[in-house]
């Protein structure tokens, strides 16, 4: 668990963090979000002590980060940054093996680990292990950046706008890969972004910041459903109900009655899609209901506009 306890940080006379307190539970993705200058990146860098607070405490598992030797602390925390920051003079496998190398792991171990991690992030080890960063695409470099952060198997992962420099199409792929990776690895992740859609997609919890203050600390459904003040309402936007539907899966709200599905059109929605996608598809057909299919194109049941509406209202009414 990572705790921020009344943390204050100045840049010159500018108060970048004005007594920030929040907690990051173990095994979850906590997204720090807010407009530029809100203090989200500053907060992140306080955890691995790239910055030091002027007041207050940052604690990891109850222990103030100040009490760790700074290099030890950093080697125990995975760090992913926006432009990947791969060392240009090292191959992909040497980049991935860098933290283990700093920790004194031998070469054979590092090579094997690099290959495993390349597999894990979906890059063919044979093709990529010996490449140099200049030979990678932006998305590939970013994947290698994630693999590097995971190399020493740290329990904590700090991600500073990790997919910010990748084009929108690739970004979504990377987000989905990250989500399934996190399902396997269960790291304690602090993820900084300014993109609300990204936050809604990857977060277990969202901390909304503005001018160095925490505005709201909540699960994404709650932030979207009940923004705590005018700024939060503004920030999540007028389509927040729609965004919120992106958090729910079709499989949880569908009806398994296959008889009810109409046959006059062939529109359908995959079972692992979100309610937002289902709604979008229903709006495109002249029916209030759409069939739900699995990966093999088999019809599993259907989902109705009514079911989607009920799911959407759930948060607001209570």
């Amino acid at each position: 668990m990572i705790e921020f306890d009344r943390v204050v940080k100045y840049y010159g006379t500018h108060r970048a963090l004005d007594g920030v307190s929040f907690t990051v539970p173990d095994g979850c993705v906590t997204v720090l979000i807010g407009p530029s200058g809100c203090g989200k990146s500053t907060s992140l860098k306080l955890v691995n002590r790239l910055l030091e607070p002027d007041d207050g405490y940052v604690r990891v598992n109850g222990r103030p980060v100040k009490s760790f030797a700074v290099e030890e602390l950093r080697r125990g925390i995975g760090y992913v940054i926006q432009s990947a920051g791969l060392l240009p003079h090292m191959t992909v496998q040497d980049n991935i093996g860098l933290v283990p190398r700093l920790l004194g792991r031998d070469k054979a171990w590092r090579r094997a680990r690099a290959r495993d991690l390349l597999d894990l992030i979906g890059l063919d080890p044979h093709a990529y292990a010996r490449k140099y960063p200049s030979q990678l695409s932006g998305g590939e470099a970013q994947r290698v950046g994630v693999a590097r952060a995971l190399a020493a198997d740290p329990p904590i992962l700090l991600m500073d706008e990790p997919f910010g420099a990748v084009d929108p199409l690739n970004r979504e792929t990377l987000q989905n890969e990250f989500i399934s990776l996190q399902r396997k690895l269960k790291k304690t992740v602090i993820f900084v972004t300014h993109d609300l859609d990204e936050a809604v997609r990857v977060a277990d919890r969202i901390v909304l910041l503005q001018d160095g203050l925490v505005i709201q600390e909540a699960a994404p459904e709650e932030l979207l459903g009940r923004p705590s003040n005018a700024f939060a309402r503004d920030f999540v936007g007028t389509d927040r109900a729609l965004k919120r539907l992106g958090r729910f899966s079709v499989s949880d709200y569908m009806s398994h009655d296959t008889r009810r599905v109409g046959t006059k059109d062939h529109a359908s929605v995959p079972v692992d899609a979100t309610l937002r996608e289902a709604l979008s598809r229903i709006l495109a057909i002249p029916s209030d209901e759409i069939s739900v299919i699995d990966a093999q194109n088999r019809t599993l049941g259907s989902i109705s506009l009514e079911a989607i509406r009920r799911a959407g209202c759930g948060g607001e009414s209570s």
Partner: peptide, 25 residues
């Protein structure tokens, strides 16, 4: 690239390692 140096620091390189493993190479 400052990002490369930040990555090096963030991974826990000492000042000396930063110089000899990253900056000079």
């Amino acid at each position: 690239d400052p990002a490369v140096i930040e990555a090096g620091k963030g991974m826990g390189m000492t000042q000396k390692q930063l110089l000899f493993m990253l900056e000079i190479p």
